[in-house]
Write a protein that binds this DNA or RNA. Structure first.
Length: 276
DNA sequence: AATACTACCTGCGTGC
DNA sequence: TGCACGCAGGTAGTAT
């Protein structure tokens, strides 16, 4: 469910809620959420550690603990909630990090796709899923010239390429459709055939869309809530995602929904056309 | 090496 | 009402 803006919003909430908390116990009720180490060792290793900070890389959260880095990916539906240990346990609660002050951080995930993993302290960025990520689009290290050169080498549709996190990290199905709409590029356009002008516009659109969505606290379509339980607001600004059947703001034609690389894809068939 | 497809899960809306 | 099917803010593993 969450893309970069949602994960960044979750991160900010977690810093407010759990920074400085000491873990007294961990309860795991769906072992496959824990990628490594084995569940027993995961629990045992965490007890006694303090959460010093929470960082983010792409859509991954990195909990900086006193003795380890803990990587978390929410995948489609993962969420964190902060509770008293005596609060009723809701359905789909899979992991509970209990603190010495009687509160706890809960990990909930309807589809159980999310993962938690412990890495050596300070080495979270070496985690294999993180190591292959491209630059952060909301930082200056998302370089236009590098992006241009990489796209020239790719003979595949632009949408799945942007979803794969290696050229730039943080885009998911919502923001990729929005960025392509903003830059008037068809989602199935072959990347190497994009003009320099189109790549420049795309580069800027990615930066703009994600930065604006971060400011808005993310997008809430169905279920996303940050760690404080708040919805995001960016849905108000969506132009393409979920707008099939509505009119394009630029040309007035109907927004269509097709399938590209197995993902629902929203675009304007007049403004966004493929070319050689 | 690069690209494409599928598994991992549950719940909800739709159509028969 | 019941049931089958398709769909959902994603990634990793496997096949081609």
């Amino acid at each position: 469910m969450p893309e970069l803006p949602e994960v960044e919003t979750v991160r900010k909430g977690l810093v407010q809620l759990v920074k400085g908390k000491e873990i007294s116990n961990v309860i795991v009720d769906w072992g496959r959420i824990i990628e490594s180490p084995e569940v027993d060792e995961f629990i045992h290793t965490l007890v006694g550690q303090t959460i010093l900070d929470v960082d983010r890389r792409g859509k991954f959260l990195i909990f900086k603990l006193s003795q380890n880095d803990m990587i978390s990916h929410l995948r489609m539906e993962g969420k964190f909630e902060y509770h008293s240990q005596t609060d009723e346990i809701q359905k789909h609660t899979h992991v509970r990090f209990q603190f010495t002050d009687g509160t706890e951080l809960r990990y909930l995930d309807v589809r159980k796709f999310g993962r938690l993993s412990l890495e050596p302290k300070g080495l979270g960025e070496e985690y294999k899923g993180i190591k292959k990520l491209g630059p952060e689009p909301i930082l200056p290290d998302f370089d236009l010239e590098v992006f241009k050169q990489q796209l020239k080498k790719k003979h595949r549709a632009i949408k799945p390429l942007l979803l794969d996190q290696t050229l730039v990290t943080g885009l998911g199905n919502i923001y990729v459709d929005e960025a392509l709409y903003q830059s008037c590029i068809h989602p199935e356009q072959i990347a190497s055939k994009l003009t320099d002008n189109e790549v420049e516009t795309l580069h800027q659109s990615i930066i703009d869309v994600l930065a604006t969505a971060v400011e808005a606290g993310g997008t809430t379509i169905r279920t996303y809530k940050n760690a404080l339980g708040d919805a995001g607001h960016f849905q108000v600004y969506l132009s393409a995602y979920g707008k099939q059947g509505e009119l394009c703001k630029r040309c007035g034609h109907t927004i269509e929904k097709i399938k590209v690389a197995q993902r629902g894809t929203h675009f304007c068939p007049i403004c966004q056309v493929t070319h050689d």
